[in-house]
Simulated assay, not measured.
Amino acid sequence: MDNLKGKSILLLSPKFFNYEIEIVNALKVAGASVVWIDERPSNTFFTKAIIRLNKNFLKRKIKNYYNSVLKQISDKQKHFDFIFIISPETLTPTILTSIKTQYLNAKVILYMWDSFKNKGALELLPLVDRAISFDKNDAQQYDLSFRALFYIDAYKKQSIAFRYDLLFTGTAHSDRYNFVKRLVAKIPELNVKLFFYLSSKKLFWAKKLSDKEFKSIKLSDISFIPLNHKTTADLVHRSKIILDINHPNQVGLTMRTLETLGAQKKLITTNSDIVNYDFYNENNFLLIDRENPVMPNTFINSEYVPTESELLIKYSIHGWVCDVFQLNL
């Protein structure tokens, strides 16, 4: 696949568990040359917290940051075919207008892998040529294109012996921790592997003070060092069933859902929209109720039914690039 051969892309996205690196690599596989800019001026706990609270408090810092990095880029590169923006947190209409003025012939593409109510960015929509969301509700409400997330190559199916019956790895947000703990207590006969992550101890203590869901969570229950893709993929490959607990305010499928599909593992999820996807098979996907989760033994004990290769290609990162850039796979 080299449909982007000879094309140059300016990619702006926050750092997110190294997925930005995977996206850069996938774009290069498609033939493009890529320059990546971290969409945040800093990734310290303080900066992230202020951005989520109100990015206007960092208005000067954000402006100076973009002025600096864009000058460095413009000194080396005078042309881009695409400006590709992923779930921006600090980008303003003024800054984006300045970038567009600098690269007049570039097509601007926005992809949201978070819901607008969680990240904002609605103010950028009038300035982009193509806007895409992973959230069906957002896509319908704002008249955007829809495209689910993807799985990276590390999650392609491998023939490895099972070590775990059930696996959960993810960020400790909303009701996730307590829900998972209650669910696992109902199935003591299964060999379960759990991993909960937060980006810093400061965030943990802030949540302890402000979020009732964290009142019973101990510091030792949380890891502050994320798993890398190699380790996570190995855990997925060594597990029979993956557990996915989506954010209550989000209908878009999580990255874990697509990674489970790529690995061809069974999935238990709280996301009711799973039944509306073309890869859904009730033998492979179990929808559970957040208030009263039930896991039938028939689901746990049955084997995975292989997914069609066309669907596996579609939901790979390479299929995602093709959909976002409207290429032939």
Rank of each mutant, 00 (worst) to 15 (best):
N191C: 06
T171K: 07
V184E: 00
T171C: 06
L167V: 07
E189G: 06
Y164F: 15
L198Y: 00
F146T: 00
L183Q: 00
L190D: 01
R147G: 01
A172C: 14
V184Q: 04
R163H: 12
Y151T: 00
P188C: 14
Y151R: 05
F168H: 03
F150D: 03
L190A: 10
L144M: 15
S200G: 11
L149F: 04
Y177G: 02
Y155T: 01
S159C: 13
F168P: 02
V184C: 15
E189C: 04
S145W: 05
N178C: 12
T171L: 10
L167N: 01
N178Y: 08
A172T: 04
K193F: 15
L149I: 12
G170W: 01
Q158V: 10
L167G: 04
K157Q: 12
V180D: 06
S159T: 13
K186A: 10
A185K: 14
T171N: 13
T171Q: 11
R176D: 04
A148W: 00
Y164I: 06
A172R: 02
Y151L: 02
R163C: 08
L149K: 00
D175K: 04
I152S: 07
F179Y: 12
S200H: 10
P188G: 11
F196D: 05
F162V: 06
Y164Q: 14
F146S: 02
T169M: 08
A161N: 13
F179D: 05
S174P: 01
L198W: 01
D165V: 00
Y164M: 08
R182F: 07
D165K: 03
I160C: 09
V192F: 06
D153I: 07
L183W: 05
K193H: 14
A154H: 05
L190P: 04
L167Q: 00
V180G: 03
F179K: 03
Y197K: 09
K156A: 06
L144W: 02
A148V: 06
N191Q: 15
D175V: 04
D165I: 05
F195K: 09
P188W: 08
K186E: 14
R182D: 13
L198R: 02
S145K: 10
F146Q: 03
S145C: 10
F179Q: 04
T171H: 06
Y177R: 01
I152R: 00
R147M: 04
V192Q: 03
Y197N: 09
S200P: 12
F196Y: 13
L190S: 03
D153N: 15
L198M: 15
L194S: 10
F146L: 12
K157W: 07
G170T: 01
Y155N: 02
Y164D: 08
Y151H: 07
A172M: 09
V192R: 07
K156N: 13
A154Y: 08
I152A: 07
Q158Y: 10
P188F: 09
I152P: 06
E189N: 14
Q158D: 11
F150Y: 13
K181H: 12
A148Y: 02
T169E: 02
A185H: 11
K156Q: 15
A172E: 01
L194G: 05
R163V: 11
V192E: 02
L190R: 08
S159P: 04
A148M: 02
N178S: 15
F195L: 12
F196E: 08
